[in-house]
C-alpha cells in the first residue's frame, strides 16, 4: 500500500510556473505607473481593472505579491464610496473573484490599509456575486 502523504505540495498546481520577484518587478512597476495615471485623471474604473491584471499568485515570489498588493490597494482606495458599486458593475466575474482575493489580503493588514474602504468593496462585490466569490477565495490555492 502506498504511503499517505498529506504534503501541501502534492496538491499545488505545478503546471503553473513559479515566477521570481525579478521577473515580476518590471510588470508591477509598469502597472503601478498606469494605475497612478488613471487615478490622477479620475478614471477609477480603469485604474481598478488595470490593477487586477495578471496578479502574482500561488507559488510566485512573496515579495512581488506584497508590492502588487500596494498597487491594488492604491486603486481601491482612490474612488469615493458612492462610485464603488458603479465600478463593480463594470468588472467581469473573474475580475470580481480576483478583487475579492485582494479585499481579504488587504484586510489582513488593518494598520496599512483602511478596512472600512475594503468592507465597502466586500459588500458591493458580494451583492453581485453572492457568496460564491467568498467561497472561491477560501478554496483557491492561487493566493495573491
Amino acid at each position: 500500500m502506498a504511503d499517505f502523504d498529506d504534503d501541501y505540495e502534492d496538491f499545488v498546481d505545478t503546471s503553473i510556473p513559479a515566477r521570481s520577484e525579478y521577473e515580476l518587478n518590471a510588470g508591477i512597476q509598469d502597472r503601478s505607473n498606469q494605475v497612478r495615471g488613471f487615478v490622477s485623471s479620475g478614471r477609477f474604473a480603469e485604474a481598478v481593472a488595470k490593477a487586477l491584471e495578471d496578479p502574482p499568485a500561488g507559488r510566485d515570489a512573496q515579495g512581488a505579491k506584497d508590492k502588487n498588493l500596494q498597487v491594488v490597494m492604491e486603486a481601491l482606495a482612490a474612488p469615493r464610496g458612492t462610485d464603488i458599486p458603479v465600478i463593480v458593475k463594470q468588472l467581469a466575474p473573474y475580475q470580481l473573484d480576483t478583487l475579492m482575493k485582494f479585499v481579504y489580503r488587504g484586510m489582513a493588514y488593518p494598520e496599512a490599509f483602511n478596512p472600512s474602504v475594503l468592507l465597502t468593496w466586500h459588500e458591493k462585490v458580494t451583492e453581485v456575486t453572492g457568496l460564491g466569490s467568498i467561497v472561491r477565495v477560501l478554496t483557491d490555492r492561487q493566493t495573491v
Partner: peptide, 14 residues
C-alpha cells in the same frame, strides 16, 4: 479529453 471545458460560477455555497 480534448474538448472544450466550461465553468459555471456558483453564486452561493459549495
Amino acid at each position: 479529453p480534448q474538448g472544450p471545458v466550461f465553468t459555471a460560477l456558483s453564486t452561493g455555497l459549495p
